[in-house]
């Protein structure tokens, strides 16, 4: 797969007109995979593909939209939903993006891997896909880790292991079997089932820990406002200190603003240094949008996001 990826990128760069291709490369330590911007053919060898390629690179496509050349990007099926949405929301010109779809067999959550391997995570030199498990090389030793134990939460309910929107595809997904885990919205429903006071206490504890580094916002493909409300100086809607009232507003404003646009890529939770379970907040928003509007973001190219749509016969039961 990696060879095929490199070959495809060589072909794309060879075709000319490219600003760069965005993929993944090994970090300074092999257990970390980092985004990689390839501009020249000699750099193609840096590109890797494997179970640690967790990042959704779509935000970088948005960043590169004003460049003269085209921007190429490697997308998993889930990431492609961001590309679809960016096109639908008129943020990128699809003609200027070269999308390479990679069949994904599920990605390993670095936090879960850390829980399973402990301090040995630092000695990991290689993680390979082996069907229903990952083959993890720790030092000289090879260990088998069940996918059920370390997959990203979103992978358990993956509907598009291969992008349905692409210019190049690197092959087909090899079917594998894992226990389905709990239903998609189970964690959200557990929270919904709590009395109001307990729910509030849960989120206040989480939001109280936020250091307002803005990483969740910066990593989000859908945060493209030219002037974010949180950065506005006059009037200043939100003060900078990471105190609970400000933090609550920060997260709730983001959540509501992403309703109908969040594609559950999980970048917000991945980048959060404080381990705030943001995916659960966004999962709730997705669930509400699904129930109210029968809509799921990024799943088709031709549907209209419900919150930018206007219908005269809208029943508006909540109004």
């Amino acid at each position: 797969m990696q060879d095929r990826l490199r070959e495809t990128v060589r072909q794309i760069l060879g075709g000319g007109g490219m600003a760069y291709f965005i993929g993944y490369a090994e970090g300074a330590e092999p257990h970390r995979v980092v985004p990689c911007f390839v501009t020249e053919e000699s750099e193609v060898e840096n590109l890797v593909w494997g179970p640690l390629c967790v990042q959704n690179l779509s935000k970088y496509v948005l960043r590169g939209r004003d460049l003269e050349g085209k921007v190429g990007v490697l997308v998993k099926g889930c990431d492609a939903r961001a590309i679809v949405e960016l096109v639908k929301q008129n943020q990128i010109n699809r003609e200027k993006v070269v999308v390479v779809g990679v069949p994904c067999q599920g990605q390993a959550d670095p936090r879960k891997l850390g829980r399973v391997l402990g301090p040995d995570l630092e000695r990991v030199s290689r993680v390979e896909d082996a069907g229903d498990e990952f083959l993890v090389t720790v030092g000289e030793e090879s260990r088998r880790v069940a996918k059920e134990d370390v997959l990203l939460d979103k992978c358990f309910h993956c509907r598009h292991p291969l992008a349905f929107e692409y210019d190049f595809t690197l092959g087909d997904v090899v079917p594998f079997e894992i226990e389905a885990g709990e239903p998609e919205y189970a964690a959200v429903e557990r929270l919904e089932g709590l009395p109001l006071e307990e729910r509030r206490a849960f989120w206040q504890k989480q939001f109280g820990r936020c250091i307002r580094c803005n990483a969740c916002r910066e990593a989000c493909y859908a945060c493209y406002c030219e002037e974010c409300i949180f950065d506005r100086k006059a009037p200043r809607w939100l003060d900078r200190p990471p105190l609970l009232p400000e933090n609550e507003l920060y997260h709730l404003i983001r959540a509501v603003h992403l309703a109908g646009r969040c594609i559950d890529c999980g970048e917000c939770e991945r980048v959060c240094p404080m381990n705030i379970p943001l995916s659960r907040l966004y999962k709730k928003v997705q669930k509400d949008v699904a129930e109210l509007f029968d809509y799921e973001a990024g799943m088709e190219c031709d549907s209209v996001p419900p919150l930018v749509n206007f219908e005269l016969d809208d029943q508006g039961p909540f109004m």
Partner: peptide, 16 residues
């Protein structure tokens, strides 16, 4: 130019 490409512009590096 090259180094700043992957930077998301968050404040993590400075806060930690």
């Amino acid at each position: 130019d090259k180094l700043s490409l992957p930077c998301l512009g968050c404040g993590i590096c400075t806060y930690v």
